[in-house]
């Protein structure tokens, strides 16, 4: 975990593409919040691992942090899912989907899963913008201040951290 934090700090401090870092963090946060026992979550994981160009340190740290905090998106997702599933106009479509193996495996008939699916793109865009701003503001205004701050200096002087930073920097140099 500490290694991951150090790597994340390196990423956020380095000149890694700001957009990649932000969308990796946004995806990590959303995947942590999305219920996992369904095929779309597994599909998304495969995309993240093999297809998307990702910053894994940012993704993983965001996934762990947002996995630890309570599911803040679930109440809204539950309400949206409820409205969509209970709507008589869509009943035929849901019945069709429920009867198909693929539809059943998506778990769409769960209010939170459907709500999270509906919320996914808007939530992704919002989180992406927020993380983009965060990284930008951090690099422009906070990076130097943090580097000069006493807590940071104390932190990097911790033997384990300093050793890991040295190792990371050595790897970077190679």
């Amino acid at each position: 975990m500490l290694k991951l934090i150090v790597k994340f700090l390196k990423v956020i401090n380095s000149n890694a593409a700001i957009g990649t870092v932000a969308y990796s963090m946004a995806l990590g946060a959303l995947m942590a919040q999305y219920p996992s026992a369904n095929i779309q979550w597994i599909g998304l994981l495969v995309l993240v691992l093999f297809i998307f160009k990702m910053n894994f340190q940012a993704f993983l740290l965001s996934f762990i942090v947002f996995g630890l905090i309570p599911a803040f998106l679930h109440p809204a997702a539950n309400a949206i899912g409820n409205v969509l599933l209970a709507n008589p106009a869509y009943k035929d479509m849901w019945t069709e989907l429920y009867n198909s193996p693929f539809g059943y495996l998506t778990g769409f008939y769960n209010t939170v899963i459907l709500g999270m699916t509906a919320l996914f793109i808007p939530a992704f865009l919002i989180l992406f913008i927020l993380f983009l701003l965060f990284v930008k503001v951090y690099r422009e205004k906070l990076r130097d201040k943090v580097a000069q701050s006493k807590p940071y200096k104390v932190f990097v002087k911790i033997p384990l951290i300093s050793k890991m930073l040295a190792l990371a920097s050595k790897l970077h140099m190679d």
């Binding site: 219920p35 997702a77 009943k91 429920y98 009867n99 008939y109 769960n110």
Partner: peptide, 12 residues
Amino acid sequence: KAGRDLVFPLRS
């Protein structure tokens, strides 16, 4: 369990 599972009529 998060959310609520709704049941739709099964064709088979």
